[in-house]
Amino acid sequence: MEIVLISLLNGFVYGMLLFMLASGLTLIFSMMGVLNFAHASIYMLGAYAAFDVTRLIGFWAALIVAPVLCGAIGAAIEIYGLRRVHHNGHIAELLFTFGLFFIFERGVQMIWGMLPVPYRVPPLLDFALFRVYGSNFPAYRGFMLLISGGMLLSIWLLLTRTRIGLIIQAALTHPNMVSSLGHNVPRVFTTVFAGGCFLAGLAGVIGGNYQITEPTMASALGPIVFVVVVFGGLGSLMGCFIASIIMGMIQTFSVIIDGSIADLVKGFGVSIPSDNLLGEILNVPGSRVGPLLPYALMILMLLVRPRGLMGNRDT
């Protein structure tokens, strides 16, 4: 029971971190049709920028400076890069961000070196918030929840209460119609791309010291964010949120499953030897396949319902 409660909490924190990354990506993806491969790289950049700003000024300054920097970089990518390749089609745009991913990874190694950098939780937040069944719940995780919750609220307000938000919402579902109505769609694109990168940068600031700030953090998190976006569905922030939480929960809960399919059928008196490939697959306990479950789920989802959980059109 206590494992379930603690895992629930941890899964929620991880899911919210995923959501911070995925929300920006899903906005970009739904509007521009670009699956931005460099999105996780921006997250990494946010973490490294926060590390440097924290060293120079302080963590609280980093919380503002690093995301703004990432947003500016995002705007630059959109204006000077994506807009240029836009007329070559979606594949060209996607491949452009794919190339950026390589450059960012190596660039980060060149600037900050290859080893992890000591980007730590600020001392002010480095204490146990409360104890559940003898386990500390670090205050920093509470802080992360606060930030991501605040972000969720402000996105929602922005999208429903402001003019630009309404245009974005319209452009999410009917991009062609919006441009026909005379809105400056390229500027909306730039805004959304910069906004998405801002969120990724913010996720980097609070995720970089929650995890480890190192050059491989982008390639480690990138694919799973794609999974969240595709699973959640195009054009739906709600779907993205639910997908993030589901993926966060899966990652934490699969760990506590010790049984395998072979164990399951053992109850019926059938034993499966593990000396061939099929037998091996059936004998793997749940905790070992946990990190693969999101991919399997995504494939299943796309096969059954290509528009994703709450998407309003096919991906």
Partner: peptide
């Protein structure tokens, strides 16, 4: 536990266990 190589980003579930 056997953890998949360099794929886990959050070990808190293992810690709980």
């Amino acid at each position: 536990e056997m953890v998949p190589l360099q794929r886990i980003r959050d070990f808190s579930a293992y810690i709980t266990k």
